[in-house]
Design a protein around this nucleic acid. Structure first.
Lengths: 220, 220
DNA sequence: TAGATTGTTAATCGATTAACAATC
DNA sequence: TAGATTGTTAATCGATTAACAATC
């Protein structure tokens, strides 16, 4: 167990480990080695061991990791041994999709409130949750102990919404809008903008411009 | 201009630059410095200059970058000076949301085909595109010159769909399903799984378990 | 015991940042 | 000219991987 500062790269791998461990658990596999984990997750086994060792000695030399125990530990590390309440701001298509998805409920994360700015949507329901006007955000976030906000409003409104979330004392934001949000350092923001993801993929399409008149690749 | 291998970190920043440059262009700003870009995008100016310099000498010393010219160049680098056809596999909630979103059309990326496995959905329409059975995937991908696939099917089917895409000669995959896909090295995969994003955010919620009985923070 | 696998240190690799000459 | 800003090299920082003693 160290008390070094943990990098975001490490933190982002923990849910990936957890997801696969849950699958192993469902399949009633009781033990797993960093080797096997690495193979399945396309990661270096040493990296996995190192990641886990930041938080404690969870494995057993010569044996590996106990699946159930490791699940429990990673959940604790991620604060997912308690329910984390989440707000969704923006009841458009994407917002609907995310809230219906609710796969993360079993991971103790739950969308408990939905907000939208357009009067037409207020009072409607998404996934059985009533859509509230954005003016209610501050009050609801405080009353319901909401810790994370998911922003699915258009880019032009995203910063405004983020400001409101911050003012209401939110701890972290998942931002689907294609903008860089400015928030105080103590609020964590993760960008989840798939348009930039998609555009960066286009770069890797060779045989496009770069190699058009040049087909010396091992064809087919 | 170098011919070093460009890292994915660099490639993923290009769309972010492009997005902001487009905004500047809309506002009729004609020139921008790495300093200003860095400020707006929360990046180090030296990093921005270095990123761009991998691909050419786009700036002018003492002046900065011409917005219109840089937009053109980045579009070329990303292969977005031509239309890139995209297929969407999985016509569920999330798939609908993504296709309706179609903000990327202006960036020359377009969803031109949608597939689903459930018979009930076949023949229906999403965003004016007819939903095809998954059996048509190979033929349609080839006929329509589809280069990128977006996977929005459940995790259990994602690998199967990826295999079909690869067999049909796709170049890159954006994977929304919460699984690690195994594909040949020449096919690029970006993970776009927001549940892991969300779970990693929970880590940063202090005042949760770790600091429960300890409220010495500068309150309010 | 012999074989397997962890936790951890040291080595390597890669990405970010600082600094500055060149030049608009 | 003086001020600004690029492109690029060198310095720094951080993350990944290899290697291995400890030990189940």
């Amino acid at each position: 167990m160290k008390s070094e500062k943990i990098s975001d790269a490490v933190v982002r791998r923990l849910p990936v480990y957890l997801r696969f461990l849950n699958e192993l658990s469902r399949r009633e596999v009781s033990t797993v080695s960093s080797q096997e984990l690495g193979q399945k997750l396309d990661l270096n086994p040493a990296q996995i061991r190192k990641d886990l060792a930041y938080f404690g000695d969870f494995g057993r030399k010569g044996i590996g990791y106990d699946v159930a125990y490791l699940i429990e530990k990673i959940q604790q590390i991620l604060n997912l041994d308690q329910q984390i309440n989440v707000a969704l701001i923006g009841a458009g298509n994407l917002g609907q999709a995310l809230s219906n998805y609710n796969a993360y409920v079993k991971d103790n994360m739950k969308i408990v409130a939905v907000f939208d700015a357009s009067p037409g949507k207020i009072g409607g329901k998404i996934n059985n949750i009533e859509i509230q006007p954005i003016e209610m955000l501050d009050e609801t976030v405080r009353n319901m102990n909401i810790r994370i906000g998911i922003i699915t409003v258009p880019a032009a409104e995203a910063q405004h919404v983020a400001d409101k979330l911050v003012a209401a004392g939110i701890g972290a934001i998942l931002n689907f809008a294609p903008t860089i949000l400015k928030v105080p350092a103590e609020v964590r923001v993760h960008a989840a903008d798939f348009t930039t993801d998609l555009m960066s993929l286009a770069y890797y399409l060779d045989g496009g411009k770069e190699m058009k008149d040049h087909d010396s690749k091992m064809a087919d």
